[in-house]
């Protein structure tokens, strides 16, 4: 069973993502604080991470590089409340992330795409 780490400070979003991802057969861990996130990242080996763009105070690129150094093969998905077009230009071009989702999209569709990438 593939394991996904969901990182978001909004409990509703964490829970919903967990619900939808578990239905697709994924094992889901949740982190609501950066400390919790770092702890889980060191403790567990995950196939994918779903990160809220505004969750971290540090630069997202540096954070992704740090994550990749700990979990080389894990795939990273970004969930953002801001325009995904701009983020896509910043991050996708460097091949750092698998996909960037805007929070204006459907949660069902987001999970569907994540599942396609991971399958």
């Amino acid at each position: 069973m593939k394991k996904i780490l969901v990182v978001d400070d909004e409990s509703e979003i964490r829970e919903l993502l967990k619900l939808f991802l578990e239905r697709k057969g994924f094992l889901v861990s949740l982190a609501s604080t950066p400390r919790e996130f770092e702890k889980l990242l060191k403790k567990e080996k995950v196939e994918a991470l779903i990160l809220d763009y505004t969750f971290f105070e540090e630069n997202i690129e540096e954070l992704i590089i740090k994550v990749k150094s700990l979990n080389k093969d894990s795939k990273i998905f970004i969930l953002s409340g801001f325009s995904s077009e701009i983020l896509e230009r910043e991050l996708s071009s460097q091949g750092l992330v698998e996909a960037i989702f805007s929070k204006a999209e459907d949660i069902g569709k987001i999970v569907e795409r994540i599942s396609q990438v991971l399958s």
Partner: peptide
């Protein structure tokens, strides 16, 4: 506006999720 939009989109994402359920 930017901060508010971010929060509103968070809530909307949850609302849509629950509508689906």
């Amino acid at each position: 506006l930017s901060g508010l939009i971010h929060d509103i989109l968070n809530y909307l994402l949850s609302i849509r999720g629950y509508i689906q359920i």
